[in-house]
Design a protein around this nucleic acid. Structure first.
Length: 578
DNA sequence: GGTGCCTGCCC
DNA sequence: ATTCTGC
DNA sequence: GCAGAATGGGCAGGCACC
């Protein structure tokens, strides 16, 4: 296809980039998107290729770099307001109509653009935004960039800054395009990305036809293997189909890869970057190791009793340590963390991901035996549904979410969610709630009331107290039907939020109940989702606050620590400050 | 120094 | 995190 | 089956403002 991008642009012009994005936006076909992107990538100057693929995935920096802009919606809106010199209301109206900020400014944008922006120039701007601390200074750079933008350039600049393209292109599609552009098998591109990490590195290898040379190196995190959810133990047994398997506890911690080599130690979290600094109790004992290995596991807040019994603490205690600049001895005492290792991906000089789990576990056991901050969780063979049930109960008694069931002959497939690993979680009872507020969504949900606030009843009164908001679980058809109903039953509009007559009853599932100031019930739900619309129930039939409190206090609610007196144990207390 | 908003990042 | 949808 | 999109609660740090 021919791209309408104006006259004779160099391959790294931002105007061209915007034109390519527009072309992708115009088609729903993935094949066509790939063709468009591949054609583009082939002609991008070599030195800008990395930036191009990064920007196409709406990344301002390589994800593994730990660098961030520190610019979000609020700062962007203020910058746009300055450049266009318009009031907030007009701007908000445009954003609401478009369903997003990026596309929203297109309607209002009158600047012609200087036709001077290039990919490296934008990248240099991002570097500067990151480097300056003050919001004023960040805003000044954004404003400078915007003033040079044409209409479509402004749209995509903001989309990259906000980290969301919404044109049906994300990392996966960019990988597909790299494969097509440089005539390499997609499988090779994927494999290379899982080994080397960032898209720019993969594009460079593909460009040089050296994808096959991609090699794993410690301190370059691999993709994580993920588990497929299963609802029931019987279902899990079915999927296993008599293949040998083991069950491990499913921990509510932070999934992390532990890389160790020549005295250097890093903990990589799933999203991007390292969390090494937050867990000296895990890292410090490893600092003197001269071994080289990469493990997969979970950072877990845990008390280990003198007899070795493992009791997991609530996730919130772990979260208090995440991102901390300074850790006090008290924090380490109150939220002691261990690294529960469950896989070994690299040992000595051997990448083990293509070896079966049973082999990887042997290597793991040998490593764990030598390092006291690497803990192995309980592991039981699964032969039948009874064994699975027993393991599940044991896991719950250790205050863990459930089980992950793994086939012993399976290989480690980074970045994939397959049947080789199954996760089986326990479920709290659901709650019947009533919708009392609704809001429009974003993007394709901009014209529907997809975002609902729900409430339960305070006992012995008619008062409704809010408990949370929910988004997922309804189909587009159901959302459309509810939108019509909420529109009819609107009592009052308060900006974007509308109060609706309490009439729609929903059944809500969730993972935990926490104490919270966010909603006026004093409670909030973790991972709320709509199970179904209860057409058969009236608002008078919904659950009460007492019911919420009852579930909150139930032993299955892992948000609450067991209030047994904490055992006076020193087993996993490290004297970092002595 | 206290408070509140914004951002990023865990689940 | 979970869930739905289009390819 | 996969990729993309849309959405929840909660924590810490950094900054703006009083």
């Amino acid at each position: 296809m021919r791209l309408e991008c104006g006259m004779s642009e160099s391959g790294d012009s931002f105007q061209l980039f915007a034109g390519v994005c527009d072309a992708c936006r115009a088609t729903a076909s993935k094949l066509e998107k790939s063709h468009i992107l591949a054609t583009y990538l082939r002609d991008v100057p070599r030195e800008s290729l990395g930036i191009a693929v990064r920007f196409l995935a709406a990344q301002a920096f390589p994800p593994s770099s730990n660098r961030t802009l520190g610019v979000g919606g609020a700062l962007v809106v203020e910058s746009v307001r300055t450049v266009l010199n318009i009031d907030r209301t007009t701007l908000n109206h445009a954003f609401r109509a478009a369903g997003e900020i990026g596309e929203g400014i297109s309607e209002l944008w009158s600047l012609p653009g200087t036709n001077s922006l290039t990919l490296p120039l934008i990248q240099a701007g991002f570097d500067r935004i990151e480097a300056v601390g003050a919001q004023d200074a960040k805003r000044a750079v954004v404003i400078d960039l915007l003033r040079a933008c044409s209409n479509r350039e402004a749209v995509y600049l903001l989309k990259i800054i906000l980290g969301d393209m919404r044109i049906g292109v994300s990392e996966g599609m960019v990988e597909t395009a790299i494969a097509e552009a440089f005539e390499s098998p997609l499988t090779e591109v994927r494999a290379a990305r899982l080994l080397v990490g960032d898209l720019d590195a993969v594009a460079a290898l593909a460009f040089e036809r050296r994808l096959g040379e991609a090699r794993f190196r410690p301190f370059n995190p691999l993709g994580y293997m993920l588990a497929q959810p299963t609802m029931t133990a019987a279902g899990a047994i079915d999927v296993l189909a008599k293949r040998e398997a083991i069950a491990e506890d499913k921990y509510d911690g932070i999934r992390a890869q532990l890389h160790v080599r020549a005295g250097r130690v890093e903990l990589f979290s799933r999203g991007s970057g390292t969390v090494t600094g937050s867990f000296p109790d895990i890292v410090q004992p490893l600092a003197k190791s001269d071994a080289a290995f990469v493990l997969d596991g979970e950072i877990v807040p845990m008390r280990i009793a003198a007899d070795g019994a493992q009791i997991t603490l609530p996730f919130s205690s772990l979260q208090k340590r995440l991102g901390r600049k300074t850790l006090t001895p008290r924090m380490l005492r109150e939220a002691p963390c261990v690294y529960v290792a469950f896989d070994c991906l690299f040992d000595g000089a051997d990448l083990l991901i293509d070896k079966p789990l049973r082999v990887r576990r042997e290597r793991l056991a040998a490593i764990a035996a030598q390092h006291r901050s690497i803990v192995l969780g309980p592991q039981v063979p699964i032969t039948n549904a009874d064994a699975l049930d027993a393991a599940f109960v044991a896991a719950r008694n250790r205050r863990n979410e459930g089980l992950v069931i793994k086939q012993l002959d399976s290989l480690y497939t980074p970045g994939r969610r397959g049947d080789a690993w199954l996760k089986l979680k326990s479920h709290l009872p659901t709650l019947d709630v009533v919708v009392i507020g609704a809001e429009r969504g974003h993007g394709k949900r901009r014209d529907v009331l997809s975002d609902v606030t729900f409430a339960v009843r305070r006992d012995d009164s008619d008062e409704l107290v809010t408990l949370g908001k929910a988004y997922s679980g309804l189909t587009d058809v159901e959302i459309a039907a509810l939108t019509e109903r909420f529109t009819k039953e609107t009592l009052e509009e308060r900006g974007r939020y509308r109060i609706v007559r309490p009439s729609v009853v929903l059944e809500i599932a969730f993972d935990q109940i926490t104490r919270s100031e966010r909603h006026n019930s004093g409670y909030a739900l973790r991972f709320p989702r709509i199970v179904r619309i209860r057409e058969d129930k009236k608002p008078s039939d919904i659950d009460t606050l007492a019911r919420v409190e009852q579930i909150y206090k139930s032993p299955d609610n892992l948000a609450v620590a067991l209030d047994d007196a904490p055992p006076p144990d020193d087993v996993n207390q490290l004297s970092l400050f002595s």
